[in-house]
Nucleic acid binder design. Structure first.
Lengths: 204, 204
DNA sequence: TTTAAATTTGACCATCTGGTTAAACCTTTT
DNA sequence: AAAAGGTTTAACCAGATGGTCAAATTTAAA
């Protein structure tokens, strides 16, 4: 009975702030713009959240917590490695298709204020050591060729995320600015990234 | 005798602006900061370049022109495909090691004002069609397996650029924030990216 | 040397923006 | 119904910032 009060101003603010912050970033977003998006007075933002910084922290921290756990769970399942990677890539690309602004936003913000990012990140206790271990075990078992597992993680993330973060550039370079074509390309990458990676890491 | 006049204020401004813009981005950079970096009065910036926008355009346009041509030239040489890819990756990573702020800066700016980016980009006439053709020919000749050459280009760029653009994140995730270790990782990727890609695309 | 033109500067302006405050309004309690 | 507490608003403020301008200074031309 606390969730569905009436219009719940706080939630309206959070939703509006998320929209605006992701689209414009911390620097580019205006408090007035967020207020307009939420359909409220600007002073109300400061009533519920003390400052722009605090409001941003709420959004950003929540976002980090939301993204990472879902991802590693797939890779830590007991399925065969081919399937784990296939499912991971499919899920990740699908999530990015639903949140196309996310990559550029996150990259922008982690580079803007590294200290702030490190703090919010560390306090959210995200940990990839299990993931590294899993890949090492797959290598020992001879299921995939030996390599630095960090390279494998970096490559998978890179191939998934980069085409979204660099969309304006790649769309122009590879598809002459054809929006439809580029989105189809992104959709197809669920398959092509998996192929590319498995071709590289599966023993011959 | 036009290049080495005296201190050449215009060059000092361009150099300072490049430094500040790449580090802070268009939004984050202050004209005063650029003036300080150049060791001149703020009004002089407006004397040489009419506005912040114009100054930024000069920097950004020049940067785009500088980056792309060097890159495709290697891939368009007549060397065998393994060597072309190896040299490309080595050169690209080396360039990024020399300009570590570049990836985050470019990604930020192409997503900030897409229209402006498209215009400056189109007027610089950068064209990848030869590159696509080259890869298609290598496939037809059976030197590499058949795939969409756009995926190959996207994957190569992604694997090279992403670890620089996402440095604060990956450094924390993969190396517990150890700067030295992460830089070694980046350096080693000259080899590991090449391996990863060739393993995937060379016929078995 | 004098004059004209180009360059450089300090002071200033208009605007934008995050944030504050006192008053108005609504909801709940007594 | 009246008091109290929580919510919302309009008006306002201080600082930052891109940009302008007239005057001063330096350089080049006559």
């Amino acid at each position: 009975m606390n969730d569905i009060k009436k219009d719940n101003t706080e939630d309206k603010i959070l939703k509006a702030a998320k929209t605006i912050f992701i689209r414009k970033g911390m620097d580019g977003a205006r408090m007035q713009e967020i207020a307009d998006e939420a359909g409220i007075n600007k002073a109300l933002l400061h009533y519920y959240f003390r400052s722009k910084q605090k409001l941003f922290e709420a959004i950003f921290s929540n976002l980090l917590n939301q993204i990472f756990p879902n991802i590693s769970s797939i890779l830590l399942s007991t399925k065969p490695i081919e399937e784990k990677i296939e499912l991971f890539v499919e899920n990740y690309i699908e999530m990015l298709l639903q949140n196309p602004y996310l990559p550029a936003f996150v990259l922008k913000e982690i580079n803007r204020d590294s200290d702030f990012f490190e703090n919010t990140f560390k306090s959210n206790r995200i940990d990839l050591s299990q993931l590294l271990l899993m890949f090492e075990n797959e290598m020992k078992a001879g299921n995939i060729r030996k390599m630095n597992p960090r390279d494998l993680i970096a490559n998978l993330l890179a191939m998934c995320i980069f085409p979204f973060a660099a969309k304006p550039l790649l769309k122009l370079l590879l598809f002459n600015d054809d929006h439809e074509n580029y989105n189809r390309f992104l959709e197809e990458r669920k398959k092509t990234i998996t192929e590319f990676a498995l071709n590289s890491i599966l023993p011959k």
